[in-house]
C-alpha cells in the first residue's frame, strides 16, 4: 500500500516535469523517426530501419537508468529522503513505488519506440508485444542500475554523470553499436541480453531460443534490480529507527 502511495507521488511529480517526461519517453522514438526519415524503409525487410530498431529499443531502455537515478538523487539532494527516513516507510516500499513508476516509463518508452518504427514501415513480424515484454524486463535491470547510480550520487548532476558512465558501458559493450567483445563478462549486461533477445526474436529463430534469452534477461534484470535495491538500502536505509 505504501509503495502505491509513493508511486502516485512519483506520478504527480513527473506530471510537473513535462520536459523530463518528454525526454524519457520521446528520445528513442524521436531517433527512430529521424532514422526512418533519413534512411527510409527501402530495401529488403524494411531496409535500414529494420537494422536500427533493436538498437534504438536498447537505447530506450538505457534512458530509464538516467530517469531512475536522477529521480532518486533529487530526493537525496533536496533532503526529502531525510524526511522519509523519519516516517515508517521501509526501503522496499519506497524503492518499490519508485521502481514501479520507472518501469512504467520504460514500458512507455519501448512501446512508443516500436509504434513509431511500425508507423514508419518497420516490420514487427507479428512479435511486437513480445519485444515490448523483453524491453520491460530489461527496464527492470535499468531501474536497478539506476538505483546503484543513485547510491553513489548525492546530487542530480552527479547522478547524470555516473549514469553517463553506465550508459557507455551498456551501449558500447552490448553489441548495439560496435561488435560485442569476446569476453563473456559482457553477456552479464542486461542490454547485451536484450539486444540478443531482440535479434533472436526478429531473426525467425525458434521460440525456444527466444524463451532462453528472455529467461536470461529476466534473471539478469532481477539480479541488477536486487543489487540496486540492496546498495541503496545500505546507503540510505529507511525505517531503520530505534
Amino acid at each position: 500500500m505504501r509503495a502505491l502511495i509513493v508511486f502516485l507521488k512519483c506520478a504527480r511529480q513527473q506530471r510537473r516535469d513535462p520536459i523530463g517526461l518528454g525526454l524519457t519517453l520521446g528520445t528513442a522514438p524521436a531517433f527512430v523517426a529521424l532514422y526512418g526519415l533519413l534512411f527510409g524503409t527501402a530495401g529488403p525487410g524494411g531496409g535500414a530501419l529494420q537494422a536500427f530498431v533493436p538498437g534504438l529499443l536498447v537505447f530506450a531502455v538505457i534512458m530509464v537508468v538516467f530517469s531512475a537515478a536522477m529521480a532518486v538523487a533529487k530526493e537525496v539532494e533536496s533532503g526529502a529522503l531525510r524526511r522519509l527516513r523519519l516516517t515508517p516507510l521501509r526501503a522496499v516500499d519506497y524503492l518499490g513505488g519508485v521502481s514501479l513508476f520507472q518501469l512504467l516509463l520504460g514500458a512507455g518508452s519501448v512501446t512508443l519506440t516500436l509504434l513509431t518504427a511500425a508507423l514508419l514501415g518497420f516490420d514487427t513480424k507479428g512479435v511486437g508485444l513480445s519485444a515490448v515484454g523483453l524491453g520491460v524486463l530489461a527496464s527492470a535491470g535499468s531501474v536497478g542500475i539506476g538505483m546503484m547510480v543513485a547510491t553513489f550520487s548525492p546530487t542530480t548532476s552527479r547522478a547524470f554523470l555516473v549514469a553517463s558512465v553506465a550508459m557507455f558501458l551498456l551501449l558500447l559493450f552490448s553489441g548495439v553499436i560496435f561488435p560485442r567483445p569476446d569476453a563473456q563478462i559482457f553477456d552479464l549486461l542486461p542490454t547485451t541480453q536484450l539486444h540478443l533477445a531482440l535479434s533472436t526474436l526478429w531473426s525467425s529463430d525458434t521460440g525456444e531460443d527466444v524463451g532462453r534469452r528472455a529467461a536470461a534477461l529476466l534473471g539478469l534484470s532481477l539480479l541488477y534490480f536486487g543489487a540496486g535495491v540492496f546498495a541503496f538500502d545500505l546507503r540510505h536505509g529507511l525505517a531503520r529507527r530505534r
Partner: peptide, 15 residues
C-alpha cells in the same frame, strides 16, 4: 523537525 529544509520542491505543502 531537524534543521535544514526537508521537502519536495515540486509538490505543494498540501500534497
Amino acid at each position: 523537525c531537524p534543521q535544514g529544509s526537508l521537502h519536495w520542491a515540486d509538490l505543494s505543502p498540501r500534497e
